[in-house]
């Protein structure tokens, strides 16, 4: 555990909590892509199946349970409790265009051809692109609530911090996981455009709106 890894995890946790609280307090999931949230629930489910097979640490186990629990709670709020506020007309990204190729790639490029390992690989690849329905939705509506941008910023920063964690681990532990690194780079790149808008607009007190 190093400082990049820990702050990355905390940033990830902050993102998840910000989104849950935003929906809960406003009693609305307007502007939130339910499809991205279903993909994240799928990511955590397929990645954390090792909760059933191996114990790494209390930290590891509790964070996994919190992440996966919050992911399902978010999906429940969007598709059940506050379904009336869900903006399905703007959430039109075709997720099969992500899930099918990612599934195929997980079968082809993995560390070990075993069910758990393929599902873990699938989750790593899927996570890297799971935010696309949300970004697509924002590009369609042309705007995002400020609290939604805080969520996206924390979620983007988390994987960027993991990149520094992997550099650290490579130098000090000789640890190196090509699958996670390449997917993490892709994931972080997808946020770059958003980071630019967040820093130049939201941090200066302006609402995030895109030119028509």
């Amino acid at each position: 555990m190093n400082v990049f890894r820990l702050t990355g995890d905390l940033s990830h946790l902050a993102a998840i909590i910000i989104l849950l609280l935003k929906i809960w307090k406003s009693r609305s999931c307007a502007g939130i892509s339910g499809k991205s949230q279903i993909l994240f629930a799928l990511v955590f489910t397929t990645r954390y199946l090792d909760l059933l097979t191996s114990f790494i640490s209390l930290y590891n186990t509790s964070m996994k349970i919190i992440y996966v629990g919050c992911a399902y709670a978010t999906v429940y709020l969007i598709y059940a409790k506050f379904r009336a506020t869900y903006d399905g007309n703007h959430d039109t990204f075709r997720v099969e265009f992500l899930v099918v190729p990612v599934g195929g790639l997980a079968f082809l490029v993995n560390h070990d051809f075993s069910p758990l390992e393929i599902l873990w690989t699938f989750s790593i690849y899927l996570e890297s692109v799971a935010i696309l329905p949300q970004l697509f939705m924002i590009s369609k509506t042309g705007e995002a609530e400020t609290i939604t941008t805080h969520y996206l910023f924390c979620l983007g920063v988390y994987r960027a911090l993991y990149l520094f964690n992997w550099i650290w681990r490579f130098y000090f532990e000789g640890f190196f996981d090509m699958i996670a690194i390449v997917a993490g780079v892709v994931q972080t790149i997808l946020y770059c455009d958003f980071f630019y808008l967040y820093i130049t607009k939201v941090l200066k007190g302006k609402k995030l709106s895109l030119p028509a």
Binding site: R47, N60, N110, H111, D112, E117, N165
Partner: peptide, 10 residues
């Protein structure tokens, strides 16, 4: 491919 490594990361 190389062998699977234990997953201590989240």
């Amino acid at each position: 491919d190389d062998d699977a490594v234990p997953k201590d990361e989240l």
